[in-house]
Design a binder for these strands. Structure first.
Lengths: 234, 234
DNA sequence: AGCCAACAGATCGTATACAATTTAACCACG
DNA sequence: CGTGGTTAAATTGTATACGATCTGTTGGCT
């Protein structure tokens, strides 16, 4: 089977970084399905670079948990197991309250402005129909959590959240079922309101339950078809 | 200047992974000083591998924040700025309380056994003298936080903590001054006691202050000699 | 026909080769 | 004697080459 199509940008100046970003965007945007094989040769051909750079990009993505590289077999878009998915959300429950409290310390009126603006956009997308709008909605939903993280002014933490949100997106792509975060949008608003009211305890409470709700909306039964190899012990 | 000496293990079967681990151990153990250049050729010669594998290892370490790779200039043992150091500890304050609460849910008598055992070892090292004992003491101090993280049973979170502890170790190597965690050891014990007593609120409180104390023991004045290049914008 | 073995094609792992950039040395010149 | 510019060495960036491993197929054997 050939590797699924990637966006064929005009190859003016491509580096490891840009390849990595392109592939990651494609994964997070669900244009690359979980489990898809990412052949070094094919990807290299698409970007007009050698396997060397492709390998670098794939290795980096494997650190981020978006790609699995199996020795002598190649790289595949990550196919997170239910257990892995649970750990990702458990991790978010452990750190996002901390982020929220820290962000609140740094937030001024302009920050609330930005958040409200993001929520507006999110609400607008919920009204629309179609695959594209759906993708944008999921992305916006993640952006809310990322924006909160950015308001801590902490680059280390922000990178952790980048990774967690990206992997969450993969999990939702795999196991998500309903009209997704229809409720999530309202919960985002409630969280912002609580922060604005300086009621951080309540805001954290809402945040944890919000993450619970996202996870509860997943149907994580095993064997959506792939892990056979792992099912029988490597 | 030649690259500083690395442990010359008998080169039976070396892979990217083992190179990465060796270099990381050397950095965390302070056998490689911050700012040291890691020449691809030299490192490759030490391990009897080609630059290809070395580059992979260095790239991985750069993702972990232990190495900085500057384009066309090479890789250097990370030299965290005071700001970066603050962010690392701020991140730990944000997530370690969450870890503590989650770990507490999973802890049985045997887990407390393990923790107490680690604390014993830590106390023993405090009594000894010499560089080696000092190194072991710092390592044991980090291991306490790592063991707590491992008790969450969450591999994602554990990886985050691995990174944070390793980078903290670098920061302490750079900016640490006093007899270090002499007090830290007692604080570790107090934290375990509080957890055992099911007083998680207090345990979290102790944990946050413990991290505060570690950070307060640093002397983070700028310009320990290197950042000239960065001081003048790239 | 069914099954196992040998083979061929494809893909990955590692090393080497060459181009681009930086760093250091050297020498002319003020 | 210090300064600036040109050149050579060293180092990194990228591509290619070759060996190893895996996968799928074919052909012979029972």
């Amino acid at each position: 089977m050939k590797t699924a199509a990637l966006p064929d940008e005009d190859p003016i100046d491509v580096s490891t970084q840009s390849i990595r970003d392109s592939i990651r965007d494609a994964i997070v945007d669900r244009r690359l399905a979980p489990g898809t094989k990412l052949s070094e040769t094919d990807v290299g051909a698409l970007f007009n670079v050698s396997r060397t750079l492709v390998r670098g990009a794939l290795q980096a993505l494997s650190y981020e948990g978006l790609v699995n590289v199996e020795k002598n077999r190649g790289a595949f878009v990550a196919y997170p197991s239910p257990e892995e998915a649970r750990q990702i959300f458990a991790t978010r429950r452990m750190i996002e309250p901390g982020i929220l409290r820290e962000a609140a310390k740094h937030m001024g009126p302009s920050h609330f402005q930005h958040l409200r603006q993001l929520l507006m956009e999110e609400g607008r997308l919920m009204g629309e129909r179609g695959q594209t709008a759906r993708r944008a909605e999921i992305k916006a939903s993640g952006d809310f959590h990322l924006m909160l993280a950015s308001m801590t002014g902490n680059a280390v933490m922000q990178r952790f959240m980048d990774e967690l949100v990206a992997r969450s997106s993969l999990v939702i792509a795999l196991y998500g079922q309903s009209a997704i975060s229809s409720c999530g949008h309202q919960e985002h608003q409630d969280i912002v309101t609580a922060i604005e009211r300086k009621d951080l305890d309540h805001a954290c409470h809402l945040m944890v339950h919000h993450i619970d709700h996202i996870e509860a909306d997943l149907d994580m039964r095993e064997n959506k078809g792939s892990d056979l190899r792992e099912a029988f012990k490597l």
